[in-house]
Design a protein around this nucleic acid. Structure first.
Lengths: 110, 110
DNA sequence: AAATTATATCGTAATATTGCAATGTAATAA
DNA sequence: TTATTACATTGCAATATTACGATATAATTT
């Protein structure tokens, strides 16, 4: 049917999968990349940077925000979007963990 | 229509989005987690660990493999799956990069 | 107040993902 | 050779994602 209940998995698995899923689209990676290049995060021009229509970009921003990857604050007329460091830290430490785990039992197989 | 051409984005954006997408499902995160707990990577019993049918697990394994997150080698009757360290490294260094970028221009906004 | 600017939401068509029963394949055991 | 075991593939129904035109909202400027 196409629906696995999230109760079947751990909180960490669900949470990280959610973050990864949000990054799992080139347009959203491009948005993250772009946010890293701009000094001030008043970012109304993300739309101009991407080959996508404004509603599409808005939707992608929403998903990044829901996943906690970016946060936005109202700045008068515009909206200030920027990367949420905490979420990136979370990802980094997860992968760090995997790597140190792999180091421990090096060369057992494959 | 629902289709963005990958040519619109950089190779890195496409590649990383692809990897992230593969991790963007709790069942696949659970598979990765499981692969980290087993000593030998003869892992036919992933199916028993997950609340999913065998074809579903097989399909998830295929996606993880296509994304380069795991690799499998035939071990007689069974198949030996294990995590591909290189891909995890790739992810880690991407997030490391983001974080050090964020450090550089701390407190400008948000 | 009317126009403009910046962004969000709605509705909907095209497409992709997810899950699984049924079936296929290929190595191993009996 | 006939199971059996360990997977993969096919086919398909249910659901989710993606993209965008049209439209709404809300602050800013004129």
């Amino acid at each position: 049917m196409g629906l696995t209940k999230s109760e079947n998995f751990t909180n960490q698995q669900n949470e990280l999968a959610n973050i990864a899923k949000a990054l799992g689209h080139p347009a959203r990676m491009a948005i993250v990349d772009y946010l890293l290049t701009v000094d001030t995060c008043i970012c109304g021009d993300i739309v101009n940077e991407l080959p996508l229509a404004q509603p599409t970009v808005s939707q992608h921003l929403k998903e990044l925000k829901n996943a906690g990857i970016i946060k936005g604050s109202i700045e008068g007329n515009a909206i200030c979007y920027c990367i949420d460091e905490n979420t990136i830290e979370k990802l980094k430490s997860y992968f760090d963990n995997i790597l140190s785990n792999l180091e421990k039992r090096k060369s057992t197989c494959c």
